[in-house]
Nucleic acid binder design. Structure first.
Length: 736
DNA sequence: AGCACGCCGACT
DNA sequence: GTCGGCGTGCTC
């Protein structure tokens, strides 16, 4: 067969088009889509991906450069991944080259020869397996590392150890004492075997779990299931047994979870249950490990793949099931660059692969509830907590006019004291990190504002500084007011650090553990804090939403929700939905074991209808009420939106661009509402003025047809060169 | 987005 | 005299 003269190549560039190249100089077999090639692009060399071929090009052949080198004999990227990326590129109106760039392991983009598939991993030696704690009495860290290695007889990769916060020095020290060794083995690239899928006996499902499982397992081909299970109802057990059935057919399962540091608890349960390789795609992996995992998934050597957002692009040898856990979580939507929703792409992928997909959540997104109502998803409900645990009752506490200590009410302190006395744990939820959100001069009213953003600077205590959470500016804390010279500078409002301080003062006999992005910067520190909590002794937990996601705290019996009032009046149309989900999730931390829990919700708005609905009738009632309102104003899921955002050094440049863009579309915007341009909620961020234009339609196809034609015009606008801009399809936040 | 070219200010 | 500021133009 003769080679076609022209190939369409996807290149990692923001330009929304493919580039034509001539066939390589040396004669060879035609190149298939998915093959990687080395091309010269502009002044640089780049790895591109063949997506098609042709006899002709829009450009003169003399203008085309030849492909310089063919990097693969067979396509490196399987056809279904190409299809998924093409679909995403069209739907999100994003450059296909950049979509590939994000979807594929970094090493596939380097032209260098890729080393053979070997894994390196640490293992305890025989001596290391036998010694007691006394031998390493003087080095707690080394002993802990050794225990970890003992727990994993098949060995732990360096990447995994790094992820767990183990320092290389500890491993080297153990190696010097002949207690641990670094080994190498050829990685398996054969499909996994199915003769002994289980490593432990599954739990016996309750009636609801069994009904859900029956529905899932009986199904052949594509079907979306919405598994709506209250916290503690045993969703994970349903996942595990659905996966088990899939593995027994020799098929692989892909599991997507939110960005919560791949909760070791979830991962542990999967590894414990199955006797087949489980691949975790976490942030600690090196490029090499990532590529190896990708290849093992493609070859079918790993049976279960667990990962965050980008794992939706993992190639599968024999796909059988896709699961999206906590499907409502907004971290499934990428918030910069290629702004895709991994949850939505999981649906697309399941349909393409003709396999079932399970979306699981205690608080499903309104989109998913709507889809279930419309019959597009099949609803599977787990309304009861597993075992005897009852749902913790809510108590709304009106704090108007009350004396508060760092935001904590007397009543909360009283309940907390009782709880600690009973030997139980208390959790204080405050979704704001730092010491105080505002630093105020008591004499003249000056307060610390960020130089680059329309935002206050947050006072931090550990170490002491002012920090802008929007642009990451750090500055020292002024001792005197820059305006009037007064030294009476006061922190106003509460952050987790301040609550931690106050609780430490009030409860000197009990440990106070703070969990937020600042206190858990190192995985090691997080593990340490979690260990304190899991010991089960009475203690106080203070934290942001990090606390609410993924971690189970069986000894917590009182949850104090300190400040959600902001979320009740958020400017964003999803504010209420997200607040409801967050409250429900935090509340779900109370009383997961045999002990009964209690949730205290402090608010200045005890009569707020959304709060009442949530507390008295539950999340589903709140969701239905929000859905009703969304229908009236044609917002998602009843209307579909995209937003064109622009930012520039001068406000006028950003606004002008959006006005030009609006004008360019006006004549053919049928069935499309264009709203704006309006300033973003934070008008200035990182020194740039930000505006947005919202596009809204009740018909998705019409919106996408419009976007396609419109973007071509928008790209050509001269004012577009004076502003930085992007399009966000299905944005999760409009006030961003 | 990169990356170059290009035309004007403050330094050895 | 040059180093380098970022405006603008291009990438098959």
């Amino acid at each position: 067969m003769s080679s076609p003269p022209v190939y369409h190549i996807a290149i990692a560039s923001p330009l929304r088009r493919l580039f034509d190249y001539l066939a390589p100089r040396h004669e060879r077999e035609p190149l298939s889509p998915g093959c990687r090639v080395l091309v010269s692009f502009g002044r640089r060399k780049d790895v591109g991906i063949v997506v098609g071929s042709a006899d002709q090009s829009e450009l003169e052949f003399s203008k085309l450069k030849p492909i310089e080198k063919v990097l693969d004999d067979a396509p490196a990227i399987p056809p279904d991944i190409i299809d998924l990326c093409r679909w995403a590129s069209e739907y999100y109106h994003h450059s296909l080259g950049e979509v590939f760039h994000q979807a594929l392991p970094t090493l596939l983009r380097s032209a260098e020869h890729q080393a053979e598939e070997v894994e390196t991993f640490w293992q305890a030696t025989e001596k290391g397996l036998l010694i007691g704690p006394d031998t390493l009495k003087r080095s707690q860290k080394q002993w802990e590392t050794l225990l970890l290695l003992r727990d994993h007889p098949q060995g732990l990769s360096t990447g995994m150890l790094k992820h767990l916060g183990i320092l290389p020095a500890n491993l080297k020290a153990l190696a010097a004492k002949h207690l641990a060794e670094l080994h190498t083995r050829n990685a398996l690239l054969e499909p996994f075997t199915t003769d002994a899928v289980l490593a432990e006996t599954p739990l016996t499902p309750n009636v609801d779990q069994q009904a859900a499982l029956n529905a899932i397992v009986a199904h052949q081909g594509f079907q979306a299931f919405l598994l709506e299970g209250v916290t503690g109802s045993g969703k994970t057990e349903v996942y595990l047994q659905a996966i088990e059935a899939c593995l027994r057919r020799g098929e692989q399962a892909l599991v997507l979870i939110p960005e919560i540091g791949l909760t070791p608890q979830t991962l542990g349960r999967f590894r414990q249950r199955f006797n087949v390789p489980v691949l975790a795609l976490h942030s600690g992996l090196s490029d090499r490990e990532r590529l190896l995992g990708w290849r093992q998934a493609r070859a079918g050597a790993v049976a279960v793949i667990i990962g965050t957002r980008s794992a939706v692009f993992t190639p599968l040898h024999k796909p059988g099931l896709i699961i999206v856990d906590e499907e409502h979580d907004s971290s499934f939507k990428q918030q910069d660059g290629f702004r895709y929703s991994a949850r939505d792409l999981a649906l697309v992928r399941a349909k393409q692969l003709n396999v079932p997909v399970i979306l699981g959540s205690a608080t499903p997104s309104l989109e998913s509830l709507h889809n279930a109502d419309q019959g597009r998803y099949r609803l599977l409900a787990l309304p009861n907590r597993a075992g005897d645990a009852a749902k913790a009752p809510y108590q709304i506490l009106d704090i108007k006019g009350q004396t508060l200590k760092a935001g904590v009410s007397e009543h909360a302190l009283k309940l907390g004291t009782q709880c600690l006395k009973r030997g139980e744990q208390v959790l204080f939820f405050m979704n704001r990190r730092g010491y105080a959100p505002v630093l105020l001069c008591h004499d003249c009213g000056w307060h610390a504002k960020c130089r680059h953003c329309d935002a206050h600077m947050t006072l931090h205590r550990d170490p002491v500084h002012l920090h802008c959470h929007h642009c990451d500016t750090h500055i020292p804390v002024p001792t005197h007011c820059p305006t009037c010279g007064s030294s009476d500078m006061r922190p106003v409002g509460q952050g987790t650090e301040r609550i931690e301080d106050t609780l430490t003062e009030l409860f000197p006999k009990f440990p106070v553990v703070r969990i937020d992005r600042d206190s858990t910067r190192s995985a090691e520190r997080l593990q340490k804090q979690l260990r304190v909590i899991h010991e089960g002794k009475p203690c106080l937990l203070v934290g942001t939403q990090m606390l609410a996601k993924g971690h189970h705290f069986p000894h917590v019996t009182l949850v104090v929700i300190m400040d959600v009032d902001g979320g009740l009046f958020s400017g964003d149309f999803r504010g209420l939905e997200h607040t409801g989900q967050l409250i429900d999730q935090v509340a779900g931390r109370a009383g997961r074991s045999e002990k009964r829990g209690q949730v205290l919700l402090q608010t200045h708005h005890p009569e707020h209808p959304a709060l009442r609905l949530l507390v008295e009738q539950g999340y589903r009632a709140l969701a239905n009420s929000i859905l009703f309102e969304r229908r009236l104003v044609e917002l998602p899921p009843y209307g579909h939106i995209a937003v064109l955002r622009a930012e520039a050094q001068h406000a006028i440049a950003a606004r002008m661009f959006l006005l030009d863009a609006k004008n360019a579309g006006e004549s053919f915007a049928r069935d499309i509402d264009m709203l704006g341009p309006i300033p973003a909620a934070m008008g200035r961020k990182s020194g740039r003025y930000r505006f947005q234009l919202v596009l809204k339609s009740t018909q998705r196809p019409a919106l996408h047809r419009f976007l396609h034609a419109w973007l071509a015009l928008v790209e050509a606008l001269p004012s577009g060169k004076k502003a930085r801009w992007h399009l966000d399809v299905d944005p999760v936040q409009l006030d961003d």
